Amino acid sequence: MSVTLSDARVVTPDGVHDGWLTIEDGRITHIGRGQAPRDGLGLGGRTVVPGFVDIHSHGGAGGSFPDGDPETAAAAAALHLSRGSTTLVASLVTAAPDTLARAASALADLCEQGLLAGIHFEGPYIARSRCGAHEPTLLREPDVAEFRALVKAGRGHVRMLTIAPELPNALDVIRDAAAEGVVAALGHSDATYERTIEGIDAGATVATHLYNAMPPLGHRAPGPIAALLQDERVTVELINDGVHVHPAMLRLAMHAAGAGRTALITDAMAAAGMGDGRYPLGPMTVDVVDGVARLASDTPGGGSIAGSTLTMDVAFRRTVREVGRSLVDAALTASLTPARVLGLDGEIGSITVGKYADLVVLDDDLSVGGVMKRGAWVRHP
């Protein structure tokens, strides 16, 4: 199958070009400027960006990945795909080891079907003082043998582990994760600047939702934020929903880390794509009011932000409009940088000849007008 998309603003890592691209057998085979050499689908000057890569999402469309229910997980994945996330990692939350293992096994089936790109354990090895929307009674000290059992349950699809580096045995688990090919992400942590550096030296390469669930920047006690921002080995996740992080702090982080070390995430939970109401997040109960998710007032930590209702198209649009970054930078942070975190940047993440045709067509207001995954329209423009 071959299709040419013409009369488009094509966003590549090198810039924004008025032109066209051709897709054959699911991959991009040609990219050109100006008039297309063959008839194709004219996009009327609309913008084409690479499919979004969301490496941290807990669900959507009423479904919660921590539940491990294949049907609702598939519905959540479909919701995010319709909003442009052609690559999606399913994030779990703190739970008992057997619960995590069952959920990982169920989600591994969806990974093997191509609906998900992997599994992320956010907990249980996180700091009680920064646990946020995680059940504090289920938190555990890091344990290499237990972690290996969770990885085994995921059948090769575990992509990431969020861990607080100050906990006992945390550095050992970080080293083991790196050896297992699992990305170690530092977060939900009260670590000092120095201990954070130790975690990075042990092999951690990602900051889980920078700023959130960690101490703020201090000029005498810089804490984890300074360590994570300044280290070239680390990619920082950012939730750009207008709730989790002030635009000024987003600008600061993107200036410090650059688009090449910044990954937009949604941290979405079941309410993404839905209305206000009460939703589950693992063992916790979340109330969504005016689109903002918080732990229910009658639960431990009630009132804490509990994930988001964000989708990646909104995060992309806010990065251009509210943060002031270019289309190229927004595409890097929403697609190529997170693809690099997963080790998939040779296949996805940018509009580049030879890569899969995972594409999003954006209307003039940067809303999603079309979505293509591996050369097939999921949402026709």
Rank of each mutant, 00 (worst) to 15 (best):
S2E: 14
V3R: 14
V3E: 05
T4P: 01
D7W: 04
A8C: 13
A8P: 09
W20H: 10
W20V: 10
G26N: 09
I31C: 08
G32T: 08
G40E: 02
T47F: 11
G51K: 10
G60A: 07
P66L: 15
E71V: 14
T72G: 10
A78P: 01
L79P: 00
L81R: 13
T86W: 06
L107E: 00
D109N: 11
Q113G: 03
G114A: 03
L115R: 15
L116S: 01
G123H: 00
G123N: 00
P124W: 08
I126V: 14
A127P: 00
H134G: 02
T137Q: 12
L139Y: 03
R140T: 05
P142E: 03
P142W: 05
A145V: 12
F147E: 03
V151I: 10
G154P: 00
H157T: 14
V158M: 11
M160Q: 11
T162A: 03
I163S: 00
I163K: 04
A164R: 02
L167Y: 02
R175T: 01
D176M: 07
V183M: 12
A184G: 09
A185Y: 04
L186Q: 00
A191M: 00
T192F: 02
T196L: 06
I197F: 07
T208S: 07
H209F: 05
Y211G: 10
P224C: 15
I225H: 09
Q230F: 12
V234G: 00
A248S: 14
L250K: 07
L250P: 04
R251K: 14
R251Y: 08
A256Y: 06
A259E: 11
A259Q: 13
A263F: 02
A268L: 02
M269N: 00
A270M: 03
A271E: 06
A271G: 11
A271L: 11
R278S: 13
R278T: 13
P280G: 12
T285S: 13
V288E: 09
V289S: 11
D290A: 15
A293P: 01
G307V: 01
V314S: 11
R318G: 04
E322G: 10
L327V: 13
A330N: 06
A334I: 11
S335C: 13
S335P: 07
A339S: 05
L342W: 04
G343I: 00
G343S: 01
D345G: 10
E347Y: 09
I351N: 04
V353R: 15
K355T: 11
Y356K: 15
Y356S: 14
V360P: 00
L362H: 04
D365V: 12
L366K: 13
S367C: 11
K373H: 09
R374Y: 08
V378K: 12
P381S: 08
P381H: 04
